[in-house]
Nucleic acid binder design. Structure first.
Lengths: 178, 178
DNA sequence: TTATCATATGTCATTTTAGACATATGAAAC
DNA sequence: GTTTCATATGTCTAAAATGACATATGATAA
């Protein structure tokens, strides 16, 4: 149900299309939320039925038409009510890589290293993307506190992950010597 | 489908009951996996049908009977195959608190502070639990590399989260002055 | 003495999520 | 010239996940 509030939060900042939301989840929110386009479009329909959001249809000449969603007053109220009244739930994380580490004792040092290098490459890419986004949005006149907080979180998260990967490489090298 | 591999990973380390798994997810894996007892019991049944695990029934006098699951050869092979062959998927995270930050601009400084304090308390508790678990398991003669890696990750994760919370408090205080 | 917690396992209905299928155009790459 | 990518929206089925319902005992706390 809280996909709904993730969407309300995004739309509260600026009117967006479903297609925009897909990109935002992938490019700027990977480290704290995710969904697929099928679920996003479906949920946006339900939210509009519930009068939380409304859309303006933009007919583009050559490109497909698009629906730009914005919050209704009801939507904004509901978002704030949720943030203040609903009890805080801990983050739900499913990190397959950390599951894979549980079987490192059965793998060779080479196998472990190539797995870790893959993760390092992925995380460095994410970090680059986040830093670019930070640079871009801080250069804008009006940049929201909320965005600043999540961007900074993303940077800290990726840096932590990278630090851990590098520590893990060293730890395994030492461990394998015995 | 990867709950299956999370379970295989846990059982690979030591034979456990479904009840044990619930506790392991909550106490020692919160920062990288989660599930509920209903899903765990159901999945264990399916895995046993597929000959990945087997159980030994332990009849306890006063306490309820329990099923201690261990890996079969097929199960161990399948776990290693998965770890090496299946493409690495990025972590799937749903962190409601970071969604709540997107609406901080609409909240009062007091509201924001109490939300952040709640998170800090939660994360400090998790960090304490993880550190205790590390202390406990490192004191044992045979402690696995895999566990060491995930414990260290958990500590780094919680510390990062706490650092961010404290940074956020300062940032908001400064921001509110203008 | 009564209620709650820990142990231990299960089912069932509903909701959420993932992934495939579906369509259409323009631009850029090869 | 053909394929692939970006734009843009949608549906549908199957799988995964949640939360409630269900049971039973012993220990501990109020």
């Amino acid at each position: 149900m809280s996909l709904r509030y993730a969407l309300l939060g995004i739309i509260a900042k600026e009117p967006v299309t479903g297609y925009d939301v897909v990109k935002i989840f992938k490019q700027r929110m990977t480290y704290f939320w995710n969904s697929t386009h099928s679920q996003i479009y479906t949920e946006l329909h339900k939210m509009e039925d519930n009068n939380l959001i409304q859309h303006e249809l933009v007919v583009q000449g050559t490109l497909p038409n698009k629906k730009i969603y914005s919050l209704t007053d009801t939507g904004k109220k509901e978002l704030i009510r949720w943030a203040l009244e609903e009890p805080l739930k801990p983050a739900k994380i499913k990190d397959e890589f950390l599951i894979k580490t549980t079987i490192f004792p059965f793998l060779s040092a080479d196998d472990i290293n190539s797995l870790l290098d893959e993760v390092i490459a992925r995380e460095e890419k994410t970090l680059r993307m986040t830093k670019e986004w930070k640079k871009h949005f801080t250069s804008q006149e009006e940049h929201s506190v909320g965005t600043m907080l999540t961007v900074e979180y993303g940077i800290k998260y990726s840096e932590m992950y990278l630090e851990w990967c590098k520590w893990a490489k060293q730890y395994i090298q030492k461990d394998m010597q015995h």
